[in-house]
Simulated scan of single mutants.
Amino acid sequence: MRALRVVPPGPGVLTELRDALAGGDAILVGTPGDDLPAEVEQRVALVVETSGSTGRPKRVALSADAVLANAAASESALGGPGQWVLALPTHYIAGLNVLIRSIGAGHDPVVVTGERFTPAGFLAAVKQMTIPERFTSLVPAQLATLLDDPAATAALAGFQRVLVGGQATPASLLQRAALAGVKVTRSYGSSETSGGCVYDGSPIGQVEVRVVGGEVQLGGPTIAEGYLGDPELTAARFVDELGMRWFRTADAGSFEGGRLTVTGRLDDVIISGGVKVSLGAVERLLHENGFEDAVVVSARDEKWGEVPVAFTARTDDPAPAIAAIEAALGPAARPRVRGGSAIPLLPSGKPDRVSLAAQQNN
């Protein structure tokens, strides 16, 4: 067994993480919990709490081999080592990955400071960089914020690559980035896969992709040991076959010609008036029709059972977007739009879907 220590988010995480990956105590970046064990299995170096954006939070147990394999695959896919700007929280896998890649590259990251992410804070971090090979990892909202600022956009265009993950990235945002000369790579993965392990639809390193019964499954050396203290959920979500460990993502998608397309969550399908409606498909069409920030959740309805409800900060007329959704998915997919209020976010930058659903159904 191996001791497990809780490390508070902040500047000390890099040192503690370096020690954990070298064989020291395993760490969890966050706050202590009464149910946290004092020890973990010897293979576990890092425990990551999931954001709980679509359900209850879980503690993912990762080995040093898994996260280092992910970092090496990422470095190869991105064209080599460099210095990273850390703009994401270090208690989530995306922020921790920036630190792990930095350890592997031999260059300490520079940190965006401040209570909230701003172009000024990002530019201040960029000024501290010491080598020309530059990388960063962002969520879509952060990328949009930087593209709204000319100076930040110019700085970002000088980066070798910008990873964007954490949620679906609207095509319009990717187009804006490309027109500005910003080289974006879309990252797909989760804490259970040591973070992003599919870049722009292609698996990196030794990662394998398969689709079983419509569900995307990811396999290879970056897959987690399981969920801390939850053997039943571990058995349900992880599969070992012929020496390969697979993670069942619960995402729907297809894998053809070596390219993965994720179409939504398997568990986001509702029955509205007897008709199946994919909330992910409704959300994607809203993004493609001018509502890039829209988040779609299910709401109870006395007549139809369930209906899709879209939240957006925009106040534009949603009628054209709704018409496009009806044409593509049918009248049952027509969302009720709640506009004009900011989307609540988790610390990871993902929309807080649980909060929105509770707000709608209470």
Rank of each mutant, 00 (worst) to 15 (best):
R334I: 06
T312F: 00
I100L: 12
E225S: 14
G340K: 03
I100R: 13
D19Y: 08
R336N: 04
V269F: 01
S254C: 07
V164F: 00
E292R: 08
V307F: 02
Q206V: 12
S74P: 08
T130S: 14
I271L: 10
V164P: 03
G280V: 10
F159D: 09
G24N: 03
A235N: 13
R245E: 05
T136W: 03
P32G: 04
G30N: 07
Q175A: 15
A87S: 15
T50M: 00
V269E: 08
V139Y: 02
P203G: 01
R5L: 12
L28E: 08
S137H: 13
S172K: 13
G290D: 04
Q142V: 09
G213N: 06
G158D: 13
G52H: 04
F255R: 11
F238D: 13
W84K: 06
L345S: 12
T90C: 15
D34L: 10
G10Y: 15
Q167F: 08
F255C: 14
V198A: 01
L36Q: 06
T130A: 11
A168P: 10
G158C: 03
A299Q: 11
D352K: 01
L279G: 03
A333K: 00
A124D: 15
I93L: 05
G213V: 12
A157Q: 13
D267K: 12
A357N: 08
G30F: 02
A87N: 10
V275A: 05
G229H: 07
G214K: 07
A61D: 11
V209R: 02
C197T: 15
A323V: 13
L346M: 12
V126T: 12
A294G: 09
S194Q: 04
R2N: 10
I343W: 00
G257I: 13
E292T: 14
R237G: 06
R300L: 14
V162D: 02
E75D: 11
A321Y: 00
D316T: 09
G214E: 04
L345A: 11
T15H: 14
R300V: 10
V139F: 04
R161G: 09
E39A: 11
Q206L: 14
L68Y: 01
A120T: 12
G220N: 05
V184C: 02
A61Y: 01
S191Q: 01
V212C: 05
S191Y: 00
W246L: 06
A64Q: 07
L88A: 08
V126D: 14
A38I: 11
R284F: 03
A151I: 08
S254Q: 14
Q206F: 14
E133Q: 15
A357M: 15
I103Y: 05
S51Y: 02
I343Q: 01
A141K: 06
K58C: 04
S102N: 14
A124H: 15
G52V: 10
S298W: 00
P119H: 06
A224F: 06
V275L: 03
